[in-house]
C-alpha cells in the first residue's frame, strides 16, 4: 500500500480529532457528575448566625484556626467576626482586627480615636464564614476544577490539584478565600466537613459560648435550626451577586457589609 505524505498528514489530523472527541465526551459526562446529578441527597448543609447573641469574644475564630490548622499568627482566617459601631452622625465604623481572633479589646477602631460611648447609637458583632453558595462563583471560575461543590452542598478545595491562580479568591464576593500560607493553595471554610460528615458540629459552633452559631440540614424540616430559618425573618449577605448563599442571619443590620 502506498501512502503519500498528503494522505498521511490528512489521516493523522483526522485520527487526532477522532481520538480527541471521546476524551471530550468523557469530560462532559464524568461518572461523579452524573451520579451527583441524579442522586437524591437527603442532606443540604446550612448555617444560622444569631447576630444578637454574638459578643465578639473570638472563641470561634481561635477554635477554627486550631481545628483547621491555619497558622495561628497569620492574618488570614476561615471565619471571622466584624464589629460595627454606628454613631450619632450617621457614620458606620467597622473593623475586624486579626479576624477578631483575640476578641475586641480596644475601643479604638483602626487605631483612631476611641469613640465616645455617648455618641454611639448602636453597635453589634457579625460573624462571617463561607456561605457554601448554591451558585458558587468560585467553583465557576476555577480553571482546573480543583474546587467543587459536594452533593450535600459544601464547596471544597482539592489541595493536590489547585494551581494557585487566585481566580476563586477574586470571584468570591464575601472575601472568604485566601492562600494557605503553608500549602500555597486556595483555602476556605468548609463548615468543618471532616466533622459534620461524622455527626459532629463545626469547631466554631462547638466553641461559641453564647449560641450565636448553628449548623443545620436544610432538607430536614424537623431540624430545629432549619425551622428557625423557615419560620423566622432571616437575611442573607449580598444577594445582589446571585450566588444564593446558605448562611442565614437573624437580626442582620443594613449597615453590614
Amino acid at each position: 500500500m502506498t501512502c503519500s505524505r498528503r494522505t498521511f498528514l490528512k489521516n493523522a489530523v483526522k485520527g487526532a480529532i477522532a481520538g480527541a472527541l471521546p476524551v471530550a465526551a468523557f469530560r462532559l459526562l464524568s461518572p461523579a457528575q452524573a451520579r451527583s446529578a441524579v442522586e437524591d441527597a437527603s442532606v443540604r448543609w446550612g448555617f444560622l448566625v444569631d447576630t444578637a447573641k454574638c459578643v465578639g469574644c473570638g472563641m470561634c475564630v481561635k477554635a477554627c484556626k486550631l481545628e483547621n490548622e491555619i497558622p495561628y499568627d497569620a492574618p488570614v482566617t476561615r471565619t471571622w467576626v466584624e464589629r460595627y459601631v454606628v454613631t450619632r452622625d450617621g457614620r458606620t465604623h467597622a473593623d475586624s482586627p486579626m479576624g477578631a481572633r483575640d476578641g475586641f479589646t480596644d475601643r479604638k477602631i483602626h487605631g483612631g480615636e476611641a469613640i465616645d460611648p455617648s455618641e454611639i447609637v448602636k453597635a453589634f458583632f457579625v460573624p462571617k464564614l463561607c456561605n457554601q453558595c448554591d451558585k458558587p462563583s468560585c467553583v465557576q471560575v476555577c480553571p482546573v476544577g480543583a474546587t467543587y461543590a459536594t452533593g450535600d452542598g459544601i464547596v471544597l478545595v482539592d489541595r493536590s490539584w489547585c494551581i494557585g491562580c487566585g481566580h476563586c479568591i477574586m470571584a468570591c464576593p464575601y472575601g472568604v478565600r485566601f492562600f494557605h500560607p503553608v500549602h500555597k493553595v486556595a483555602e476556605k471554610c468548609n463548615f468543618c466537613y471532616h466533622r459534620i460528615t461524622k455527626g459532629m458540629k463545626p469547631a466554631c459552633v462547638e466553641a461559641c459560648p453564647f449560641g450565636a452559631r448553628h449548623i443545620c440540614n436544610l432538607k430536614d424540616h424537623d431540624d430545629p435550626v432549619t425551622r428557625i430559618i423557615l419560620n423566622e425573618r432571616v437575611a442573607i449577605l449580598k444577594d445582589e451577586y446571585g450566588t444564593k448563599p446558605n448562611v442565614f442571619y437573624l437580626g442582620l443590620d443594613h449597615n453590614v457589609r
Partner: peptide, 24 residues
Amino acid sequence: HLQQPLRGIEVLFTPHFTSAIAAF
C-alpha cells in the same frame, strides 16, 4: 504568578470549561 507553577500545565490537560481561564 501561580502559587503552584508546576501544576500550570493542568489548565491545558484538565480544563474546567466554566472558567474563562480554561479557554486559554
